[in-house]
Design a protein around this nucleic acid. Sequence first.
DNA 1: AATAATAGTTATGATATGTAACTATCAGTT
DNA 2: AACTGATAGTTACATATCATAACTATTATT
Lengths: 163, 163
Amino acid sequence: MSNTKLASIAPSRINDDTLRKFLGYHLKRSFNVIQADLSETLKPFDLRMLTFTALVFIVDNPGLSQSQLADAMDIERPNLVIIIDELEQRELIVRDRVQTDRRMYALRATLAGKRLCKKAVAADKAHELRLLAGLDNETKANLMSALEALSHHLQNRTESHNS
Amino acid sequence: MSNTKLASIAPSRINDDTLRKFLGYHLKRSFNVIQADLSETLKPFDLRMLTFTALVFIVDNPGLSQSQLADAMDIERPNLVIIIDELEQRELIVRDRVQTDRRMYALRATLAGKRLCKKAVAADKAHELRLLAGLDNETKANLMSALEALSHHLQNRTESHNS
DNA sequence: AATAATAGTTATGATATGTAACTATCAGTT
DNA sequence: AACTGATAGTTACATATCATAACTATTATT
């Protein structure tokens, strides 16, 4: 912490006043921290953020198709394929052929998938509580409702662009 | 919207109640939208989110070193090198050798860099106003303060881990 | 029967992020 | 002065994320 030479040349305290006014700035910084911590949290379950999210969707929406899932996850169909491949290979989910429309699969979680999902959801909960520890309940509640409102607002915005 | 067959097999409305309880879920979805829109916004300036952020930091903190910048941007030093390379090649910034410590560079924006920065900041502002259009001012203010609090909280948390 | 649309896939490229190892330089110790 | 360790920047590399174009198989529409 004793960079006397540096102090004479470079600013000792970095100023981010300009960027601080941007929502995206805070969003990215926060997301990076949470993403990194969640990755560690999910590592024991051999899940990443994306595989976890997909698994939860499938557990909660048995029979949904890959297109529906990609839509729900807000990612492109091609990117979902390897995620589903991975979950299927690990026998956490199955791709059931739909008899009435043989183009698509009905995705369903296996018993193992449901069990892993439950554990991972609990771990995720603990991870968020850990990360937010120190904030009072009111702040946390405000945070959640503000983020939910933002997410909802932005999602609806893009919907009107796609359709 | 007339998928009568599908409705009998797959859920017609995807349920995300489980994930909706997670802060990270909303954070990721929101970030994706903003990131995509900001990328488009910055395209006319030939900037990406990262090059833009680096440029603003350098304009606002003339003389800072790459290590300081990487720290401020919360990225690893190696990843900053190509960003600085790009900005330098486009003559938006310069790497000044520090006479008192020849290991490091003092980063400074050129006139062109400062001009581009100003325009890009204005475009970013417009982009966020556009994305948040439709939300009332109170909601926007809550959002900003909540996100700033989160960002600040998480940043301090990681600091205590690093040092 | 011909054409268009949809579901899933493959291939590919751009971007982002992290780690290990290296060179050059500086700081502290003996 | 020489040795050791730390720091700044770099290179090389591996991986994850995300998007687009083009393809096959199947279904819907005309």
